[in-house]
Write a protein that binds this DNA or RNA. Structure first.
Length: 383
RNA sequence: GGGGAUGCGCCGAAGUUGGAGAGUCGGGGCAGACUGUAAAUCUGUUGCUUAUAGCUGAGGGGGUUCGAGUCCCUCCAUCCCCA
């Protein structure tokens, strides 16, 4: 059984003298999370194509994501409460973080209207109208019961002109204050603590990012998120903003860079002081046939793998990636068999988790910087 | 053996009433994209060449016509009916 009444806390254990990388442990009621960490995305109560048993035993995921917008639409707060929360419902005993729906303000921009009160969405399922207010989003996340819940924000697009970025950031700040107030005046529903992470915005503008970091820190009880990046900006801008923001944040709180990224992005941002990551890339790209390895990425659907009977990834930590051949995986994709997507997803997530596990180990033994510098260019190559 | 129907791109459809087709739709093939998941999705491409263009092309061959995928003759293939 999880340590249900454990206080949530973050302990910074080590800082890399050769970069800004850090090693720590985030404690939740559902388990300890070693940082840096990658969190697989499980939008609607499932990490697509992966069973919970594989998630814990093969991929060694320490925490997964859920999504407020999607879970609110289906199965809905009422049913989740009846089930005893998302952990019980999906039978995942590890920690869960829920995004607030702020990303859908960006990705479903054509289906929503932003007002001071909140964002009104026309459901992508049936067109029905729903208001997502900061208070409402807190209530939904109480019902879902995630260990870490996110403030309701507006994830701005890229490019985004300064005026809009500023206006949007200020709205996100006002929404944050309302989120925080609601969060403080409500209780967890399932007997274990939840923590609210505020989100820094400000697009790619230095002064806005600094202002946002300064404002948002006041609402950070446990950890802080950096949002509004990896939305199409050049990676140099993403790194620059991440670096700038991290340099302003208190060292005793974990930094969560939302939506990032490629394996190379993750290593670079670990080096800038980020502790937590999530991204749909390993899962979505797996379903689309893109396989990440230490020798670069490869499209398993390409003809060149037709009769390549070498392992999917001979260096992979999980047996599945070592035991099945590239030719077999390509075959599964060619005939559109579900198992192809399952194996590819298992592999990619396992690859991501192993990558951050090794990063942590190397930060501790001092070899992170050199290892990262050598590995990043290779990771970005196409095989 | 007799009669009938149908034949175009890798496959399957639709469509072209003698007047602009390397064209339409679906599939398959090949390739690209994907960053807090409206995504098992989307995009491109899929005869040849010296490639912003040109050439060849409607089962094969021949004919009529200013012009033929369309009409005529013939051969071939497939399917159906009769024997």
């Amino acid at each position: 059984m999880p340590e249900l009444h454990t206080e949530m806390k973050f302990e910074l254990e080590h800082s890399d003298p050769h970069s800004k990388a850090r090693v720590g442990t985030l404690q939740t009621a559902h388990g300890q999370i070693p940082t840096p960490i990658f969190m697989p995305v499980g939008t609607i109560g499932t990490v697509k194509g992966v069973h919970q048993k594989e998630l814990s035993e093969d991929i060694k995921a320490k925490i997964i994501l859920g999504n407020t917008y999607h879970l609110y639409l289906r199965p809905g707060s009422e049913l989740l409460e009846k089930a005893g929360g998302l952990h019980q419902f999906m039978n995942w005993q590890g920690p869960i973080l829920t995004d607030s729906g702020g990303f859908q303000v960006f990705s479903l921009a054509h289906r929503r209207k932003i007002k001071e009160e909140g964002a009104t969405f026309a459901s992508h399922i049936d067109g029905s109208k729903h208001l997502f207010s900061p208070e409402g989003v807190m209530d939904i996340q109480r019902s879902i019961g995630a260990d870490i819940i996110m403030a309701f924000d507006e994830c701005t697009p890229y490019p985004c002109d300064y005026r809009y970025a500023k206006k949007s950031m200020e709205l996100t700040h006002r929404w944050l204050k309302r989120c925080y107030t609601r969060f403080k005046e409500t209780e967890p529903k399932y007997g274990y603590p939840q923590s609210l992470f505020p989100i820094i915005q400000g697009s790619v503008y230095k002064d806005l990012r600094l202002k946002s970091a300064e404002t948002v820190v006041q609402y950070a009880d446990l950890g802080i998120a950096i949002g509004g990046l990896s939305v199409g900006e050049p990676k140099e801008e993403m790194y620059a903003m991440t670096d700038l923001v991290c340099s302003q944040l208190p060292s005793d709180k974990p930094r969560y860079l939302m939506g990032v990224g490629t394996p190379a992005n993750i290593l670079e941002c670990i080096a800038l002081g980020v502790d937590m990551f999530d991204c749909v890339m390993p899962t979505r790209n797996a379903r689309h046939g893109l396989i990440f390895t230490r020798k670069g990425k490869l499209n398993i659907k390409n003809k060149k793998w037709k009769d390549d009977f070498s392992p999917i990834d001979e260096e992979a930590p999980n047996p599945t990636s070592r035991q099945h051949t590239k030719a077999y995986l390509r075959h599964l994709f060619t005939v559109n068999e579900l198992l192809g997507m399952q194996i590819a997803t298992l592999h990619n997530l396992s690859f991501y988790l192993e990558l951050v596990r090794e990063a942590r180990e190397r930060i501790l033994d001092g070899s992170f910087r050199a290892w990262k510098d050598e590995l990043v260019p290779i990771l970005e190559q196409k095989r």
